[in-house]
């Protein structure tokens, strides 16, 4: 790829999704954009970029930005976070929100493994708090990722990355060479395309947000925007779980870390009082 094309992709990603793309990573750019070029009917990435410059078509820009945003994912990725949800967060929420739905959101759900993992855990725990009503939401920037997530269909390779065999047998059916998550799990989740740095004024009322491995790859202004958007989306007492090693707070942001829980943040007291 030409240096000016790599620069253009980096600029588009920063502007549209807040994603930090290193223009020096030629291999990564080509790996991600090759399939976009083919899908869009171009002979090469060079032709794709020329087409982009000529047409400045919004759909094409988003195809590129979404392709660059796609991250690696697996079921129960960083297992400790799910154990903490099962052992600490879910019981606490079930106790605290007895008569109200408990709303959980996977904010960059990709192809669905994270929110499906949470849905399986919730289903496994259903007998513990019969009165608790969990509502699960998955959102992502990428329409293509969301389409796959909603099918609940995964390859044999995908279901072997992180998914315990007992969960596979309990929650999936084999369909030809694919594995299909049960209708009960699939139907427990609502999906929506969402840009975390966009207008989220109608996204409200969440008790727990999983936003892992997202802000670490964003430019700083976008990080701040995401933190503000997520904080505004929380119910009083709500929490956000970021990825391990992702530190979103560098000053007076509206979220503060929760002691002894890596990656877990809650609204600052003043924000809680105002909420």
């Amino acid at each position: 790829m030409k240096p000016e094309d790599r620069e253009l992709v980096a600029q588009l990603c920063a502007a549209r999704s807040g994603q930090k793309v290193d223009p020096a990573k030629d291999y990564l750019l080509e790996t991600r954009l090759g399939p976009v070029a083919r899908r869009e009917g171009f002979d090469s990435i060079g032709d794709l970029m020329a087409g982009l410059r000529a047409r400045r078509e919004d759909r094409l820009i988003w195809a590129i930005v979404e392709a660059m945003a796609a991250g690696d994912t697996s079921f129960f990725r960083d297992r400790a976070a799910f154990d903490y949800f099962r052992d600490v967060l879910a019981p606490e929420l079930a106790h605290r929100r007895k008569d109200q739905p408990i709303r959980i959101w996977s904010a960059a759900c990709g192809t669905g493994q994270e929110i499906h993992s949470l849905a399986m855990l919730v289903d496994d725990m259903a007998g513990q708090w019969p009165e608790a009503r969990f509502e699960l939401f998955g959102s992502d920037l990428s329409e293509r990722a969301l389409e796959k997530a909603q099918t609940g269909l995964y390859t044999q390779f995908e279901v072997q990355r992180g998914l315990p065999i007992r969960s596979l047998v309990r929650h999936f059916e084999k369909v030809d060479e694919m594995w299909a998550i049960s209708p009960q799990i699939r139907q427990a989740i609502r999906w929506r395309r969402l840009n975390l740095i966009g207008d989220m004024s109608r996204v409200r009322g969440f008790d727990l947000v999983f936003c892992r491995n997202v802000i670490g790859s964003m430019i700083e202004p976008a990080q701040r925007q995401v933190v503000e958007n997520l904080a505004a989306a929380l119910n009083p007492g709500g929490k956000v779980l970021f990825g391990s090693g992702e530190d979103p707070v560098a000053g007076a942001e509206p979220l503060v870390p929760v002691d002894d829980a890596p990656g877990l943040y809650a609204l600052r007291s003043a924000d809680r009082a105002a909420a």
Binding site: S74, Q156, F157, Q160, R161, G162, P164, I165, R166, L168, V169, E173, K174
Partner: peptide, 27 residues
């Protein structure tokens, strides 16, 4: 699924479906 269930009921702890790679084995 029937084979996997039979293995688990017979005392298996985990189950890898071939083909496999180092990532799957480690997981």
């Amino acid at each position: 699924v029937s084979a996997i269930r039979e293995a688990l009921e017979s005392g298996a702890d985990e189950y890898i479906m071939k083909p496999f790679d180092s990532e799957i084995v480690a997981a």
